[in-house]
Structures are given as structure tokens and as C-alpha cells.
Amino acid sequence: MKVISKEEEREHYNEVLKGGLIGGGVGLALGLGGVLYGSKRYAAFRQLTLPFRSFIVTSSGTFGAIVWAERYSVKYQRSHDPMNNYLNAQHQAQELARQQAKTESEKLMDWGRENRYSIVFTSWIASMGLALAMVGKNKYLSTAQKLVQARVYAQGLTLAVLIATAAFETADAKSGKGRWETVMVLDPNDPEHKKLIEKRVHKEEYEGQDLWKDMVAAEEKRLADQKKQREQLDKQASKAPAA
């Protein structure tokens, strides 16, 4: 466990406070703008109680403050953790080669797989807003009926997204993704670093989980190179003519 100083603790607190203020301000602005627009545009929205509309504004600000404070906290911790920036040249080249070998559709699928739960939440929010806009035009429904009907529409779209997410989960379980993946990496025996070979690698559950493995591999490679250099020097010394 790393022991932080009072100065680092104060800097971290200031960064978290800064992120919270920025996120809270943006969230409040978006929430207030959304409420004002909804009140002006939709009659059903104007029938909502003032406490409920106030809750929408304040919850938007709270959500923004929490998210951005967390981001600034993680960013500060990563920037002050020397282990986080440890990546040898071979690892960087392998990651670059893997990304370049993927097609655009594969990159899109990977993005959807990694952000599946965020997509579910965002789709529910978006579908709820879209459904409210659609049913808000119906003059023959009460506010309660419009909310119920909008929720049904939103649940239908969210269910479709959940089914797609379940398909991702099933595919990952069958292929072993999420734990181990077969990827294309640079051949360590290729001096030009152009040849790609298949390698089964462990997918980290959190960033830096397998960092120690990279450090051990890099140290072993350094020791092996030193040993090889010593052997070459010994051979050259043995072949040199005696003075």
C-alpha cells in the first residue's frame, strides 16, 4: 500500500473537488435546460409537479458531480503512479499491431462489448425521452396514461438492447473472452518486429492487473541479453591472440 503525504492528499482532494464542481455545473445546466425545454415544448411535461421537476434538475447535477469527481480522482491517481506508466516497447508495439489488424466492424463490436452496460442505460434514457415526445402529442391521454405508455415503449427498446447484451455475454462465455483471448501479437524472435503470431493472453479485469507479468518478462529479457553479451565478449576474448 502506498503511503501518501499531506500534500498529495490535499492535491487529490482539490482535483476531486474540481471535477465535482465541473461535472455538477454541467449536469445542472443540462438538467435545467432539459426541464425548461420540456416545459415549453410538451404539455404533458408541464403537468408534472414542481418538486418532481426540481428533482430532475438536482439529480442531473448530482450525477454529473459524482461521475466527474470519480474521473478526476482516477486521473490523479494514475498520473502519480509510476507503475501505471510502465509499458515496455514490445508491449506497446504488440498493442499497436493488434489494433491495426482489426477491421472497423471488429473495432465497433469490441466497443459495444466493452460498453454494453453503458449502452443499456443510455438507451433506456433515450428511449424514455423519445417515447414521452411521441405520446405527448396525444391529446386524449392523461399525464399518468402518457407516462405509463412511454414506459412501455422504453421497456420494449431496452429489452431489445438487453437481448443483444445477453448475446454478447453468451458469445464471450463460449469463446472464453473476458478471461482469456487469442490475439495476434508480434513475434519476439523476429528482429524486424513485423511478423504476427497467435498468442493466448489473459484479459485484465482491471487496469494493471497483469503489470507484474510484463515487468518480470522485461527483467528476464534484460538478464538474458546481458548473459548473451557476456558470452560474446568471452568468445572474443578467448579468440584474441595473446600479447
Rank of each mutant, 00 (worst) to 15 (best):
G156E: 08
V183W: 01
E70D: 11
H202Y: 12
G176H: 09
L233K: 02
R10G: 05
A242T: 06
R222C: 11
A65N: 06
R78W: 06
Q145N: 14
Q236W: 00
M184F: 06
K221S: 13
G31E: 06
A65G: 07
G156T: 11
L50T: 06
A218N: 15
Y37C: 02
V201E: 12
D214F: 07
K177W: 15
I22V: 10
Q47F: 05
E106L: 04
T58H: 02
E8S: 12
R53A: 02
A154N: 12
S5E: 05
R46T: 00
D110E: 15
Y72H: 14
V57I: 12
Q232H: 02
F45Q: 03
F168T: 09
K137F: 13
A131E: 04
Y42D: 01
M109V: 04
V26D: 03
M1P: 02
K139V: 09
E231A: 05
Q226E: 13
K18P: 03
V120N: 08
A133H: 08
K221V: 10
R46V: 00
K75F: 05
R10K: 12
V152Y: 09
L233C: 00
K40L: 04
A29L: 14
T62G: 13
F52S: 07
I197Y: 02
S175N: 14
T158Y: 08
K235S: 01
S175R: 11
D234Y: 00
K75V: 03
P82W: 02
A44L: 04
G27C: 11
I197E: 06
Y72R: 15
G24R: 10
R53N: 05
Q47Y: 04
E204Y: 07
K6W: 01
N14A: 13
Q209S: 06
V74T: 14
M215T: 10
A97V: 07
M83K: 13
V148Y: 09
K228G: 04
K40N: 07
A167L: 09
R179S: 11
Q94H: 14
A44Y: 07
D214H: 12
A93K: 15
V152G: 08
S5M: 08
E15G: 04
V183Y: 01
G24T: 05
D81G: 03
D214M: 11
S127K: 10
L147I: 13
L132N: 13
L17R: 08
Y13Q: 13
W180I: 01
Q236S: 01
Q99K: 10
R71S: 13
H12D: 07
A160V: 10
E192H: 08
K203M: 09
H80Q: 00
A224E: 14
E8N: 12
T122H: 12
E104R: 10
D190P: 02
G31Y: 09
M134L: 08
E219R: 11
A243F: 06
A101Q: 12
G25F: 04
M83Q: 08
S118E: 07
A69T: 10
P241D: 04
R46E: 03
